[in-house]
Nucleic acid binder design. Structure first.
Length: 425
RNA sequence: GGAGAGAUGGCUGAGUGGUCGAAAGCGCUCCCCUGCUAAGGGAGUAAGGGUUAAAAGCCCUUCGAGGGUUCGAAUCCCUCUCUCUCCGCCA
């Protein structure tokens, strides 16, 4: 959520910023609504104050043993007016909140302006895509030749956009997850967490998936409403919900492995083949809670932690800054990391690292105590994949393949594979 | 699933219709005193919001959540959520 004070004072500036995303913010409409809120709230609070004073004086009169009947008559009239005002105020405030919850985060100033992914800007590259000396297969062909990746079975069980893996390939994904968690906890100082996979609406509102992106979520039951998490970002970031951190307890860094569930509504026809875009996939997620003003530095660190995973796996990648139009709803600035896929001969997203500054913190009232003033203030939250396990598996398969279709095990994963050197058909 | 108990400020914990946003204690902050390793005295110490350019001040809201009764609710009524204890069931 954008600071309502900023919206009131600088609605036009906010509209100009959001326009960089291609988002249209009706500043005049908002200000008109805000004007109504103000007059209603001032009047309502005046009436409440009046009522409180009267009630108090009645209490005092009664304590003195006086006749309170005339006082009661005078006060009774107020009730209806107050009630009507309170109801009207509530309506307007709900309308304002709806608007505010629907606004994406402000874009950071250094984010390149653009409309689509074509306007994203490459920041750096690491590693060289190797020439295998033969025509590289994609992970679908590799997996099926190994007999360890079965999309037919998956579709019989669950339909499109699911995968079944067996044997060493299934273990390879687990190895990747363990390796990533170990790297982040041991090398990068993250605290491993285990969190719920089913969450209630307020959690999704907190991170920004609701109310706007309901159709992207898998809803399980209506009563109580439970949603499958689309990313561990949701439960992990909500660990900060309605808490005030001691100043010295920040930064906090959490790492979590969870499955992720996405309806992929609106992406029909995209990546229908293979494991790139699934309804269910595994991911290791990194989340930071930091003091305001330090979040841009934290974003660089966070991105570096995700990169470290790919470097250890010796997978070539590039880092890009998402342009304004491609940056996610809650993010002020996002780096995507794209890994080289030999079978596709292109870079594909494997991690997305975002600085949400106070956008999510405001929605979930996540605060810290300011060491100077002693007053609570909103913290900044960041999240990033470190990294998507399903896609990391694809990257290992395609980049470590041999001419006969076997897959070499990356050096760092061997301990997790019981010393296995390669997966063979 | 059955039976019961509970949810109050950073913590413990009082408060069953009227100066209660809330006693007391602990903790914390500041000041004073004391030459001694610990103690004494005093003051302050919830959050959200409105008003304001901002602050101060003033006002509103909040005692798990949502409704209701009432001039007035932490206190009474209803619904829900969560926690704890016992029984049953269970990975």
């Amino acid at each position: 959520m954008i600071d309502p004070k900023l919206l009131r004072q600088s609605a036009a500036d906010v509209a100009a910023n959001l326009a960089r995303r291609g988002f249209v913010f009706d500043a005049d409409g908002y200000l008109a609504l805000e004007e109504r809120r103000k007059s209603l709230q001032v009047e309502t609070e005046r009436l409440q104050s009046e009522r409180n004073a009267s009630a108090k004086s009645i209490g005092k009169a009664k304590a003195r043993g006086e006749d309170i009947e005339p006082l009661l008559d005078a006060v009774k009239q107020m009730g209806e007016r107050l009630e009507a005002n309170e109801a009207a105020l509530q309506t307007v405030q709900a309308e304002l909140r709806d608007v505010e919850l629907g606004l994406p985060n402000l874009i950071a100033d250094d984010v390149p302006v653009g409309d689509t992914e074509d306007d994203n800007v490459e920041v750096r590259r690491w590693g060289e895509p190797a020439d295998p000396g033969f025509e590289a297969r994609d992970h679908i062909e590799l997996g099926e030749r190994l007999g360890q990746l079965d999309f037919d079975a998956a579709s019989r069980i669950s339909g499109a956009r699911f995968a079944v893996m067996t044997g060493p390939l299934a273990r390879l994904q687990r190895a990747l997850i363990q390796f990533m968690l170990d790297t982040h906890t041991t090398d990068h100082g993250y605290v491993e967490t285990y969190v719920p996979y089913l969450v209630k609406p307020p959690a999704l509102i907190g991170t920004g998936q609701l109310p706007k992106f309901e159709e992207d979520q898998f809803k399980t039951t209506d009563e109580p409403p439970f949603y499958l998490i689309p990313t561990a970002e949701v439960p992990v970031t909500n660990l900060a919900r309605e808490t005030i951190f001691d100043a010295e307890s920040l930064p906090i860094r959490y790492a979590a492995h969870t499955p992720c569930f996405r309806s992929e509504a609106g992406s029909h026809g995209q990546d229908t083949r293979g494991m790139i875009r699934q309804h269910q996939f595994e991911k290791v997620e990194l989340v930071h809670f930091v003091a305001p003003d330090t979040s841009m530095d934290a974003l660089e660190e966070l991105t570096g932690h995700a990169e470290a995973v790919l470097q250890k796996l010796e997978l070539p990648y590039r880092v890009i800054t998402l342009c304004s139009g491609d940056t996610g709803f809650g993010s002020a600035k996002t780096y995507d990391i794209e890994v080289w896929l030999a079978g596709q001969q292109r870079y594909r997203e494997i991690s997305s690292c975002s600085n949400c500054n106070d956008f999510q913190a405001r929605r979930m009232q996540a605060r810290r105590r300011n060491p100077e003033t002693g007053k609570p203030e909103l913290i900044h939250t960041l999240n990033g994949s470190g990294v998507a396990a399903g896609r990391a598996l694809i990257a290992v398969m395609e980049n470590y393949q041999e001419a006969d279709g076997s897959i070499r095990i990356p050096e760092v994963l061997k301990p997790y594979m019981g010393g296995l050197e390669k997966i063979v058909p």
